[in-house]
Amino acid sequence: MDQLITYSLHLADTTLILAQRNAEWCAHGPILEQDIAITNITLDLIGQSRNFYQYAATLINQSAEAVAEPATEDSLAYLRTEREYKNLLITELPNGDWANTILRQFFFSVFQFGLLEQLQKGSDAQLAAIAEKSIKETTYHVKWSSEWVIRLGDGTEESHQRMINAIHNLWTYTGEFFIPAVYEKDVLPHVDFDALKSAWLEKITEIFTEATLSVPPASFMQTGGKTGHHTEHLGFILTDLQHLQKTYPGAEW
């Protein structure tokens, strides 16, 4: 049960932090149409994270012996600390430019699509149900971000160079997708992470080829997010995110 709670929180934190980052584009996008497009993705991710938090809260409230304050989606999102957050590192990195943002979305969405497919087949009915709803959204995120990778990779000289820089920035954070934490192995005994990784790499290669970009060779990969060892960025994200709840403890909004 504890493992399932932790895993749900990992999924919730990951989607929330990515949403929080993408939301920084709202009102600052490169053109109105794309401002609206990335904000749609942000809203999808917040929706997904709320579903995972609500599930985690239900599990916590069932398992705990008479806690005074039952857990809610907001208590989980707003009152946990940096070390308790279990999001993937890649989600907390600064947005950088549009190339960096859409490439991160592409890496993440392709991974998430494969993962959600597995969750649908998993033994936990609630996770399967959330996955079934989410995968329709993620299908679109993959399509949208793939097209941007191709467009920028095979666009102008400048956009191509910016994509190369983005790959350089982000690649080392993609390994974490496929290195399962203890709680993941426990909740997802049926998932072959190596197979997930091959499928991911295949899709990345396909799109990169069309985008005239090269896939970097296997190299050292950063990890830690899944167990609460984060980059220095997360603290600032949470300071922002949790500002009101921390300043006015116990208030309803």
Binding site: I31, E33, Q34, I36, A37, N40, K143, E147, R151
Partner: peptide, 20 residues
């Protein structure tokens, strides 16, 4: 109406802008 670089993007922009 809306702006887009090509037809494919125009359809997606239309989805994002006009079918929210």
């Amino acid at each position: 109406s809306l702006h887009a670089a090509d037809a494919q993007m125009a359809i997606e922009n239309a989805r994002d802008v006009y079918t929210r």
